[in-house]
Structure formats: structure tokens, C-alpha cells
Write a protein that binds this DNA or RNA. Structure first.
Lengths: 123, 123, 123, 123
DNA sequence: GTGGTCTAGACCACC
DNA sequence: GTGGTCTAGACCACA
């Protein structure tokens, strides 16, 4: 896995987990990969992996069955969706508009990129 | 100046400088505030301020006349615009689309927020 | 380590690093000494040492594994060689010829010094 | 005049003066340009120009007739030549050889560049 | 353990 | 006045 510089690895792992849950790849009540598996596949220190699990456990997105592994909670997918939507609309979107304004990029420009993006990813 | 936690202050100063250049507030070949002025006005250590100057100097956005101060290079405004546009289009925009996709937010939804944003900031 | 006056210490550290890489002492992908080790062994403030690391990191000669340390990039040795060669041939060599010309020193004179230098350092 | 970064401007002016004397452009006992002329033509602070004059005056390479201007001393050209030769042979040349060694550049390589240089500058 | 950031303050060179 | 370098030392995030 490629990590972005300047952003903590454990945060990037959290995001990776959220993506899997949002995309339906990991469904409610399903078991997710073990700490060890993640640590190995991502070439990451187990301590770093554990931090990601702990954060999502604190937010009740995943839970732990001792000796068995981690699972998505039944409300997990909904919680993630809410969290992400909220963050997206109150933080990212306004920031985006501000940047567009500063860079003189019109909404139509974005629209063009969007159409292109859709074409490429649905084809 | 108010700084965002968990982002280095010197990066925020760099962004502040870029904003001033992009907005036309600081024009090509014009002198910009001295290190000490910035340090005082932002209530920051001069060393921290210098880091911002050094970064932009390395990118040839500003240059130094010894004993006189820092100036915007003649290509400075263009370089900043290019840098920012590039980063925006190759990083933020794809990220945006991916998030929209995951969160099931349509382009029309975004459009509504955009119209609202414009109405608020131009009124 | 003995530092030359009137040249920044951090530049001299950069040169020291480059020398180690050029001489094959530090090879591609190998870990190099930590910031603290260098700071202690060179009797220099860690901040001063960090500047050297940062400069070479910006030039992609070394890179950082978070929490682990700094490593020579795979292209590091080549980049250093290119950088140094370029600087040598475009700056030092023409400067040399110009000085020789001004001082009325012939190429044969230099040759004698060179032979002497080689004799002393290979003997 | 274009100045090199990282080297004091007054030193570069001193070098410029020495070059003029060595090349025979400014001969013994001849008047050299006034401080003001140099300051204007080089777009430099007069104080900075004065430093260069003072340094060469201290070394008895130039002298001042009050109200008239600066002149090259009768021994000026010889002194400059001695100074430069000494510095060249004891500092620059050994440094050059060391760099050649590190960069795996042979003396024959240098010879080729030299022949090329001569051909270009005598043609 | 690793590096990164920041402050406080000194000292210097240069213009 | 300008910026540049360096030290000492604290505190933090990360692995």
C-alpha cells in the first residue's frame, strides 16, 4: 500500500477501512481482516495497525470478539456514512469552492472533469 | 492570525503568501513584508517565519535582495497559479469525485451547494 | 568533525553525506545514521543536522521511513554524481580556465601539480 | 552586473577589480572608476562599493588621492598576481584534484575541455 | 526509538 | 535596517 506523506499512516488505514465499509466490501456484522494480516499486507508496524482498529472501535464502527477477530457493527455502515457526509459537506466542499474561486476555475470546468471521470470509471 | 492545529504553522504561512500573490495583493517584483514584520504580526518566532520564505524562495516564487528584503519574482504569480492548479486538478478533484461516489452524492447536489455558496459570498 | 569557517555547517554536512554516497560508503536503499547520531558525533545541534537531511530529502537523494530513519534512495547515488558532475563541469572548470588564463598559468603547470598530487595520495 | 548568491557582493566587486588589473585593463598608476560610478553601474549600495575599495586599499593595490579618485598603485598588478597565484595553487588546485578524484574525472577529460575552451576563446 | 515543529535568544554578515 | 545561522531545549507524533 502506498501512503501519502504528511498524513499519519494510521489515519490512512482508518480511511481505507471506511472505504471498504462504504463500498459494501465489508458488510455489517462481517469479520474484517486481523490486525496481523493488515500489518503484513500493508507493511506496517502492528502497533500502527492497532491504532486504526482502536479508533474505529471507539466510534463503534467495528467491535472485537476476543480470540476471534474484529467485526463491523450492525450500525457501522450507517455511522461511517454519516461521519463522512458530515465532514464532506461542512469541511471539504466549502474549502473546494474557496479554492476554485482563488484559482479562477468555474463550476463548468469541474463538470467537464466529472463527466470524464464517470466515463472512464463506468466504461 | 489564527492557525489550524495539526498543520505546521510555516505551511500555513506559505499558503497565506500564496493567497496574497494569487489574489493580486502582492504583485510581481513587489516587496513583501520583512521576516520580522511577519513574525510580529503573526505572533510567530522569526525562525518559523523564515521557513516559509525559504520554501517559496526555493520554488522561485520570491527572491531576496540582500539587506533589502524579499520580493515576488516576475514569474512568481504564474508559478503559484500553476502549482496550485496542478495540485487541485490532480489531487483534490479526483479525491472529490471518489468521495462523492462513495457517499452517493450526485453532482446536482454539489451544484446546489455551490449556488448557495456563491449567493452568500457575492451578496 | 572540523568545519570550515564562513561556510554554513549544514552545507558541510550535506557535502559530507554526498561524499559518503559517492565513495560507496553509503549505498542505495541503505539506512544512514539517525539525526541524533549525526548531531552527537559531529557535535552539532540536532536542528542543524536536520537541515542537511531535509535538503537531501528535497532532492530525493535520501528518504524517510517514519519512525525508522533515513535511507539512501535507489537513485540517490546517481543523482549525487550527476549533480556534482554538472556543477563541476559548468562552474568550477570554466572558472579554473579563466583563472589560469588571468594568472598566466599553463596547462602543463597544472599537470605537474597533478602528478605530484597523485604521487602523494597513492603512495 | 550579475552577482552570485551566497557570496558577499563586496567580495565579488573586489574580484572584478582584480580581474581588471590582472588583464591589464587597469594599469599601474591609472585612475579607476569612482565609488559612485561603480555603485551606479553595478546597482549596488555605495557602502557596499566602498568596502571593496577599502579592502584593496588596505592591501596597497589601490590608493586614494583626496578629491581626485582612486588609482592603481605602481606595485598593484604584481601584488594582485602574487595573491591570486598563491590562493590558486594552495587552495583551488588541491580542491580541484580532490573533486576530480571523487567524481571519477580523469585529467585527460579536463584536457579535452581545456582545448575546447582555448579554441572557443581564441577564435 | 525515530523525525518534526516551534520557541527563545544570540550572533553574524550584509546593505 | 535586512536576512542567515546556530544553539539549547521543549514538546509532539509516529512506529
Amino acid at each position: 500500500m502506498d501512503f501519502i506523506r504528511n498524513q499519519p499512516i494510521y489515519i490512512q488505514i482508518v480511511d481505507y477501512f471506511c472505504d471498504n465499509i462504504l463500498s459494501g466490501n465489508w458488510k455489517a456484522n462481517e469479520k474484517i481482516p486481523s490486525v496481523r494480516e493488515i500489518a503484513v499486507s500493508m507493511e506496517v508496524n502492528p502497533n500502527t495497525a492497532i491504532r486504526a482498529y482502536t479508533i474505529l472501535q471507539d466510534k463503534e464502527v467495528i467491535f472485537n470478539k476476543r480470540g476471534v477477530g474484529y467485526f463491523v457493527t450492525s450500525l457501522g455502515p450507517i455511522k461511517v456514512l454519516d461521519m463522512k457526509r458530515d465532514e464532506f459537506l461542512t469541511t471539504e466542499v466549502p474549502q473546494l469552492f474557496k479554492t476554485m474561486n482563488l484559482l479562477q476555475i468555474s463550476f463548468d470546468d469541474i463538470k467537464k472533469y466529472y463527466d470524464k471521470y464517470i466515463a472512464e470509471n463506468n466504461a
